[in-house]
């Protein structure tokens, strides 16, 4: 960093004395100098791996017979592979439930916290945000314990009503078990983003609305929510990307419920399993690439649908 600066500074200074026509060149140069370092990292750790994954995914490696070029066979296989499809279907289903749930909760909390200004509200804001500071892996470890029917609190809570505690790690309920973990983990973070956006709204707008006879509910629905729509869209995009590549939580809970959470539970886990446990990097890459493609298409489609509201792209 210091190296770059010292090299660049004299050149830039010398340039300021040159004639007008050259300013343009200088601007090109300076722009690229600022963007360049990131550009190099971008090429090395994003473009190159993507290209390489694409290349790898065109080959096939067998225990007997070695490696051979198969063109798009891995993709044909992936999109007819019940493991990949069921994993993709799971994350899609999960996204459809989890994302709206998290955002509705986050929005409700943000609106409440925007309206209530007591000391307790400020305390709550921090506490609700707290889980974001917990690595998802640790969060999953913690909830794994809490879900235990023998020594987690569930048995105590359900025992109060004389009921038997549900097993959130069983195949029937794992969906809800994971839903709870991700909501706990992310709702607070989304709430903070929405809250920050709400705080950025000019209070005079509320005054005007109140003059026109709008109630608190109407102000929330008619003014606050539309004004923070870009923030909502941003959150949606990020949660969509995050949920479609679900990995950490189920991977950790596998230690507790290997029967419920198979190695092909989500596409990302399946890709990991293929690449790192079965040494099939080619098929693993194909799955990764296919997943990346699906995510890209989903997000782009979403942004296209909401293009009128977004100011962020």
């Amino acid at each position: 960093m210091t190296l770059l600066t010292s090299k660049r500074a004299p050149r830039a200074q010398a340039k300021t004395h040159k004639i007008r026509g050259k300013v343009h060149l200088r601007e090109h140069l300076m722009g690229w100098l600022f963007v360049g370092p990131f550009g190099i990292v971008f090429l090395a750790f994003l473009i190159a791996p993507l290209a390489y994954a694409l290349y790898l995914s065109l080959f096939k490696k067998q225990l007997i017979g070695g490696t051979s070029f198969v063109f798009l066979d891995n993709y044909t296989k992936a999109f007819t592979d019940p493991s990949f499809l069921s994993g993709a279907w799971f994350v899609l289903r999960f996204s459809l439930v989890a994302i709206p749930l998290q955002i509705v909760i986050a929005l409700a909390m943000a609106l409440i916290l925007d309206a209530v200004t007591s000391l307790f509200a400020r305390f709550s804001r921090l506490m609700i945000f707290l889980p974001y500071a917990i690595p998802t892996v640790i969060g999953a470890v913690m909830w794994g314990f809490l879900y235990s029917r023998s020594f987690g609190p569930l048995s105590d809570v359900f025992g109060l009503f004389g009921a038997e505690a549900p097993d959130f790690l069983s195949s029937n309920l794992i969906f809800y078990g994971l839903l709870n973990i991700t909501t706990w983990q992310w709702a607070g973070y989304y709430m903070i983003i929405l809250y920050a956006a709400l705080q950025g709204i000019e209070p005079t707008l509320y005054e005007a609305a109140r003059m026109d006879g709008a109630g608190k509910w109407q102000i929330a629905v008619r003014i606050k929510i539309p004004l923070i729509a870009p923030a909502l869209i941003l959150i949606l995009v990020f949660s969509l990307i995050g949920t479609l590549q679900f990995f950490n939580e189920p991977q950790i809970l596998r230690y507790l419920a290997a029967g419920t959470i198979g190695t092909d539970f989500t596409p990302n886990m399946y890709a990991y399993q293929q690449a790192f446990a079965l040494a099939n990097f080619n098929y693993g890459s194909a799955i990764s690439f296919a997943l990346g493609g699906v995510v890209f298409i989903c997000v782009y489609a979403f942004l296209f649908i909401t293009r009128k509201r977004r100011s962020f792209l």
């Binding site: 791996p49 994954a53 990307i241 590549q245 990764s288 997943l291 890209f296």
Partner: peptide
């Protein structure tokens, strides 16, 4: 556009590189 590329999709090729 890169915002939309799942970071984990990069791990396998990066590992081999």
């Amino acid at each position: 556009g890169a915002l939309m590329v799942p970071a984990t999709a990069l791990v396998i090729p990066t590992f081999i590189m």
